[in-house]
């Protein structure tokens, strides 16, 4: 066979491959479009930001580009959309409780502000998904209208009983309740205005040493953070104190054991009865949210020089 013929044959085969790829790209279904049961309820300016930044993956109405359908890429995009909808679907906003809607709005802002969302790879190819500084300000201004205030109460409402369970409860992740956190150093204290809680964070000696040595990228195995959460209670003079006890949460560092959740194990014990909350899957949700604190190795509540 002559060289010219070989080149011609190669060209034909390449042409067929390109045509086949193009045909595949235009016919591949990357994501289905279930009906919108109830869209995000927010001012139009806010909604538009979420629409261009989040809706492609976090709604039933997202549009994919032709290159999202390319072989090899389509499966990644399809998986991301499925996962995104499971986590938050703006087209099924009506299925969320009032508290879940509030939580989703603040979390969405924090994920965007931290640069975790939209996914950097996605933003590279979908320039319209980028959220500008002025758009972030628009979202912040909107959220500031949703700050939660704490009303004053006439007197102390906290039941002053002491409890020590006969056996310490264990969470689904295998983490047991550790009362010894009371002897650990305070890492920080926070007052939330996206809800009405206040918290105190304690760090075990390994975690505290890691903070002091600035060795939290990654945190060393054995580091543990405990977070105690109460409802805020305002007294007659306006001061806010810990009111009703809500829960204690733990983050336990073990890179191997908890490799599926970013190296952190999560546990939460609710009410004075210290009832373990959630399943192993709940820990995935925790890990997903804590990605927004990537700058501090997954820990939100470290005080910085702002």
């Amino acid at each position: 066979m002559k060289i010219a013929n070989k080149r011609s044959l190669t060209g034909i085969i390449a042409g067929i491959a390109v045509l086949a790829t193009a045909a595949f790209s235009f016919t591949t279904t990357v994501a289905d479009h279930p009906p919108v049961t109830g869209d995000l309820d927010a001012p139009e300016a806010v909604k538009q930001i979420f629409q261009h930044a989040c809706y492609d993956c976090h709604s039933n109405t997202g549009q994919v580009q032709w290159f999202d359908r390319l072989p090899g890429v389509a499966s990644f995009v399809s998986r991301d959309i499925r996962e995104a909808r499971k986590h938050l679907n703006f087209s099924e906003w009506d299925r969320l409780s009032a508290a879940e809607k509030e939580g989703a709005l603040w979390q969405a802002y924090n994920m965007i502000n931290s640069g975790i969302m939209p996914l950097p790879a996605y933003k590279t190819l979908h320039r319209n998904a980028t959220v500008s500084a002025s758009e972030l300000a628009t979202l912040r201004n909107y959220l500031n209208t949703r700050r939660k205030a704490v009303p004053a109460v006439a007197g102390k409402t906290v039941t002053d009983t002491l409890t020590t369970p006969a056996t310490l409860p264990v969470a689904a992740t295998g983490i047991r309740f550790m009362p010894e956190f009371r002897t650990w150093q305070v890492m920080s204290t926070t007052s939330r205005f996206d809800n009405t809680t206040m918290r105190v964070m304690f760090a075990n000696p390994i975690a505290m040493q890691a903070i002091k040595n600035k060795q939290i990228h990654p945190w060393p195995d054995g580091a543990i953070i405990a977070k105690v959460v109460w409802e805020k209670e305002r007294d007659s003079e306006g001061y806010i104190h810990p009111g009703k006890f809500l829960n204690v949460q733990y983050m336990v560092r073990d890179q191997q054991r908890y490799k599926d959740t970013g190296g952190w194990g999560y546990a939460k014990f609710e009410t004075p009865a210290l009832k373990p909350y959630g399943t192993v899957l709940t820990a995935q949700t925790c890990a997903s949210c804590h990605k927004a604190a990537a700058n501090t190795g997954g820990i939100f509540d470290l005080s910085t020089f702002n």
Binding site: Y109, F193, T296, F300
Partner: peptide
């Protein structure tokens, strides 16, 4: 700095 919706010491 890491969570808008929260004040810290």
């Amino acid at each position: 700095q890491f969570w808008f919706g929260s004040d810290i010491n």
